[in-house]
Amino acid sequence: MKCCLLYCCLHPEDYCIPKKRLVEYWFCEGLLNQFDRISDAQMQGDYIVNSLLSACLLERDGEYFVKMHDVIRDMTLWIIREFEVTENNFFVKAGAQLCEEPDVKAWERVKRMSVMKNNIKVLKETPKCPNLRTLFLGQNELKVISNGFFQFIPHLTVLDLSRNFGLRVLPKGISELISLECLDLSATFIEELPIELKSLTKLKMLDLSYMHNLSKIPRQLISNFVKLQIFRIIFRMWLLQNRDYPNEDNVSNGDNEKLMEELKYMT
């Protein structure tokens, strides 16, 4: 339960954390007794959330969200600093008004990192982070991610790029993330899923919600994710009539039949 509490402080101050998404991230991180199925893990995740609420370590924010009180978050971050000499290092600069990516030397040995809700536009470095498991980059102003950015992050498990409205292209170097189990691209302006995503065979969660510019999903990409358990896709129907990519290599072209055929292979 302690690990789950520490995980919450990756979010900015006063941030509304979706309960369902939080449990799904815990599941992909292996924090829920290493359950193999999200359906089994959900019950334990809900129990942990309710326990943290009962202990006043989290606060309710409506039916579907929770918050961490500022004092509790500060205390949690202090606890994290006390563990800096261990493998559980955290680097948290969420909502810190950053305009550039942090110096790579500051986080090359951390296990979990959050720079979400900042103003970062470009990720140009090639960090070497052998221990990094969690990377929150959501709600920035990302436009460019260099091909080398993901090259030396071999154990990354959760990658959140959501709500980067200027992000239109994923780097081909994302294929290096062979340990990735959760990829959140929701509410980005990415136009095409690169075929290089095929190498992410451990994916359990893929969120393509509200990707209104998404025009191409290569054939046999989704079905290649044989461990996929959580898959979301919501976009405007007119995008399904896209003519920029040939039908034979694009399951998002035409009607829904090709995409539904791909989904048959999900576990």
Rank of each mutant, 00 (worst) to 15 (best):
K2N: 12
C3S: 07
C4L: 05
L5E: 04
Y7W: 08
H11R: 11
Y15C: 07
I17T: 06
I17G: 13
I17Y: 11
V23L: 10
Y25G: 04
Y25S: 06
F27W: 07
F27R: 01
L32F: 12
L32I: 10
N33S: 15
Q34W: 09
A41Y: 05
Q42T: 13
Q42K: 07
M43A: 06
M43T: 07
Q44Y: 04
Q44S: 07
V49Q: 08
S51E: 14
S51T: 15
A55K: 14
A55C: 10
C56R: 09
D61R: 04
D61E: 09
D61H: 05
V66S: 04
D70R: 07
V71Y: 13
R73A: 12
R73C: 03
W78E: 10
W78A: 04
I80K: 03
R81K: 14
F83P: 04
F83C: 09
E84T: 01
V85I: 10
N88W: 04
N89F: 03
N89E: 05
C99A: 13
E100F: 13
K105E: 15
A106C: 13
W107S: 14
R109S: 14
K111M: 06
M113G: 01
M113Q: 05
N119E: 13
I120H: 09
K121E: 14
K121Q: 07
V122Q: 14
K124C: 14
K124G: 05
L135D: 07
L137K: 11
G138C: 10
G138T: 02
Q139I: 08
N140M: 12
E141G: 02
L142P: 11
K143M: 06
V144C: 13
S146H: 09
G148T: 00
H155K: 12
L156A: 07
V158D: 00
L159W: 06
D160C: 07
L161T: 10
N164V: 15
G173V: 06
S186H: 05
A187P: 00
T188L: 00
E191F: 00
E192D: 04
E192F: 01
L197C: 04
K202M: 14
L206M: 07
M211V: 07
L214P: 02
Q220V: 10
L221T: 02
L221D: 07
L221F: 10
N224G: 12
R232G: 11
I234M: 09
F235D: 09
R236V: 05
L240W: 06
Q241K: 12
Y245E: 15
P246A: 07
N247W: 14
N250V: 02
S252W: 03
N253Q: 08
N253G: 02
G254E: 03
G254L: 02
K258N: 11
E261F: 12
K264W: 15
K264H: 13
T267Y: 12
T267S: 13
